[in-house]
Design a protein around this nucleic acid. Structure first.
Lengths: 216, 216
DNA sequence: GCCGACAAAATTGTCAACAATTTCGTTCGC
DNA sequence: GCGAACGAAATTGTTGACAATTTTGTCGGC
């Protein structure tokens, strides 16, 4: 096995193109609705057009780009209504994960959730929205991870990728961290108490509040 | 616009290959875990390998086939545990759709649900499991459709495609239609009564029962 | 001055050949 | 007789060129 250890070296062109293009879109380097010309991308990433095509097809079914027959690809624009609909799906799926995590997580994993909770509290108290946003994301990822629900996790990652832009906008809103913090602490408390129903309810309450915040 | 009217005539090779291959897998023509050699598929469908590759990439991200670097593609085998996990996701997502449908559906759409309910009752009474299975599927599709939740619908279609084999197995089980019928009628009743919470609960109850049935 | 047809440019879709990788059968050494 | 190394066959990954389609700019007619 020649190149298993260091991803990026002998990685196949298609995977490389997919990763780079995906990163570029998620980092916001591509303006929404910007045209993605296969030749330009191929030259930019140093791979052939076929690899770009393969990557675009995959990104299309992940909902990150839009492709029209013989007319090319664009980065998909997520309207506010779509963002709400996506978050509603997140609401039920993360609720499922939280309920499962409440029964399936190990004690060590529960202490990690508690640790994250105190860190978040501190970040808000210190007035560091950036740190808080990161911890926020990590908390959601951990809960999913501890649930052991691979199918739900895969769906959620796809959904979240479509929301990066809106998430960014939301994190910087003043006053939002304070409200969000309490909801997150309630989620943690319910999971640590191993109460599936309360955990699901807490997640739903939190994401309902996110939906309301999105609608401005 | 030369060929907009009749899909299939001037359809591009990739779309054609994608559709045919997808159909073949869903119809069960491809045995689970069967190897899918690109050259064979290309010859069989009368398209080039590039089109087959594109179709395989798309089917991979839909969860219908599995691809391993330099080792080829196989139709993905869905274990019972995976089928359960997938159905748990369906449970929450269809619950969401049912709740939305209870408030968003038009009166005409509600009468259609009622019509479907009586048809299902008749099919069970007449002992026609095939007809019942079809109506069952149509009911779920309609509820999703009436919810107007495009994101959830897209996710559910993907999940359902992975379950065809298990669904088939389940439909032929004796005694199952009778139990399933009551649950379906409860779903319809709740939606027609425009009660979102009851609708979600009814859908959850139904799919919980499906999960139990899957575990044999 | 405006509308439609026409032609050229840009872009995507398709194809066949070539390179790299893996797998499987064989052979050599012990 | 058994295990490891070697090599041939099969299969996937990649490349560049070619064909089909759409878009854009231009010209002539009204």
């Amino acid at each position: 096995m020649p190149n298993q250890s260091r991803p990026g070296t002998g990685e196949q062109a298609r995977r490389l193109a997919l990763g780079q293009l995906r990163e570029a879109i998620l980092r916001g380097e591509m303006v929404p609705a910007q045209r993605l010309v296969e030749n330009e991308l191929a030259e930019r990433f140093g791979v052939t057009r076929a690899s770009i095509r393969a990557a675009l097809i995959e990104l299309e079914s992940q909902g990150l780009v839009e492709r029209i027959r013989n007319r090319g690809s664009r980065v998909r624009v997520v309207t506010v209504e779509e963002a709400v609909a996506i978050t509603e799906c997140r609401l039920v799926l993360e609720g499922l994960c939280a309920a499962k995590a409440a029964t399936a997580a190990t004690d060590e994993q529960l202490t990690e959730l508690t640790r994250l909770g105190t860190a978040m509290r501190k970040a808000v108290a210190d007035g560091e929205p950036l740190t808080y946003s990161e911890l926020n994301h990590e908390l959601h990822v951990r809960i999913r991870e501890f649930s052991g629900q691979q199918t739900a996790v895969a769906l959620l990652e796809r959904l979240n990728a479509q929301l990066v832009r809106h998430r960014f906008q939301l994190a910087l809103r003043p006053g939002r961290p304070q409200q969000s913090l309490n909801e997150h602490l309630a989620m943690i408390e319910a999971i640590v108490a191993r109460d599936p129903q309360a955990a699901e309810a807490a997640v739903r309450a939190h994401l309902t509040s996110v939906i309301e915040a999105l609608r401005d």
